[in-house]
Design a binder for these strands. Structure first.
Length: 105
DNA sequence: CAGTTGACTTGCA
DNA sequence: GTGCAAGCCAACT
């Protein structure tokens, strides 16, 4: 899979994420067929093209439930969608992680 | 063209 | 719970 295709796949998957759910970068990479490319998934968000700004990129967090290092809005956007945060500022993955993860184990 | 960086993950201390 | 190290590889300097 070429890198551009990888990005495209990530964006496509992201588009399928229901409101009130979150996914991890690593999970996106796995669903895109590249389990070791979690960082590419991160770049896919960091370099999100203008014509894809409508994607719910704010529903993407890292494996620990933490938000992007430089994106204060993300947490607010998620809270608006009903995603709860722990007191320490992390998303409660055990409750809000996209259920797809369970079907692929 | 070589070295560094990073919207990551996993594992161990 | 937190922190550091290694592995990953495209993008950036």
């Amino acid at each position: 899979m070429d890198i551009p295709d990888f990005y495209t796949t990530v964006y496509t998957i992201l588009k399928e994420v229901p409101q009130g759910r979150v996914v991890t970068y690593g999970l996106l990479a796995r669903l895109a067929g590249q389990p070791t490319q979690a960082r590419r998934a991160g770049r896919a968000m960091a370099c999100l093209p203008d014509h894809l700004k409508h994607l719910p990129a704010h529903r993407v967090v890292n494996s620990q439930g933490r938000c992007a290092p430089d994106w204060p809005e993300q947490r607010i956007l998620l809270e608006k969608e009903g995603v709860g945060f722990r007191p320490n500022g992390c998303v409660d993955l055990s409750r809000y992680l996209w259920e797809v993860i369970r079907s692929l184990s």
